[in-house]
């Protein structure tokens, strides 16, 4: 419980930083911090394997991908964002506060679980792997196919459109003004 009492306020602060800060790179770095803290929470509650996967995939891949995308796209300065904030934040708060109230109400009403329930044992990688690759083997294969398709699709999306630039020179001689 003590590690959670330390980690949870840090997680909330990191998420606030990711939402609050106007400079996009700072927001993305706070997101990376929040994701790393989530991985530490997973380690603290006994889900070691999930914590390591979270650290490798989210902090190592997704957060770095977001930071690199920000560097490539060079977002504009934050002055415009700061000017727009008061109006958009009122709308945002009006939409999200009811959602937060409902979520907290639902979280405080988990009466089906006794308060002093015995904790589940920590995640054993061996038994987890056995369940993953026997009972859920089709799902693992499906995720593998999905990730392959995503890799090809993302590469095609991000590729420069060379096809159109190759066809343009062949069309130019046919245009009336060239002769």
């Amino acid at each position: 419980m003590t590690p959670l009492l330390i980690l949870c306020p840090m997680m909330i602060l990191a998420a606030l930083g990711a939402v609050w800060l106007a400079r996009p790179v700072h927001a993305a770095l706070f997101l990376a911090l929040a994701l790393a803290l989530t991985a530490v929470v997973y380690l603290a509650v006994g889900a070691d394997f999930i914590g390591l996967v979270q650290f490798m995939v989210y902090v190592g891949a997704v957060a770095v991908l977001i930071v690199f995308s920000l560097l490539i796209t060079r977002p504009g300065d934050e002055a415009e964002e700061l000017l727009r904030r008061p109006r958009s934040w009122v709308t945002g708060l009006a939409c999200t506060l009811p959602v937060f109230a409902v979520l907290v109400y639902a979280a405080s009403r988990h009466t089906c679980l006794p308060d002093a329930a015995p904790e589940n044992p920590s995640l054993s990688v061996e038994s987890f792997g056995r369940v993953l690759f026997t009972t859920h083997a089709p799902a693992v294969l499906a995720v593998g196919v999905l990730l392959t398709a995503v890799m090809i699709g993302a590469a095609l999306f991000a590729k420069e459109a060379h096809a159109s630039s190759h066809t343009e020179p062949t069309r130019k001689p046919n245009t009336p003004g060239d002769s």
Partner: peptide, 29 residues
């Protein structure tokens, strides 16, 4: 309880994420 603590943190995270989606204008954010 630890469960309540984690549920409240996750509620707050969800709300903050929704807030970011509704208020930010940069697609990456």
């Amino acid at each position: 309880t630890p469960l309540s603590l984690l549920l409240i943190v996750s509620s707050l995270w969800f709300t903050l994420g929704l807030f970011a989606v509704l208020t930010r204008r940069n697609a990456i954010l």
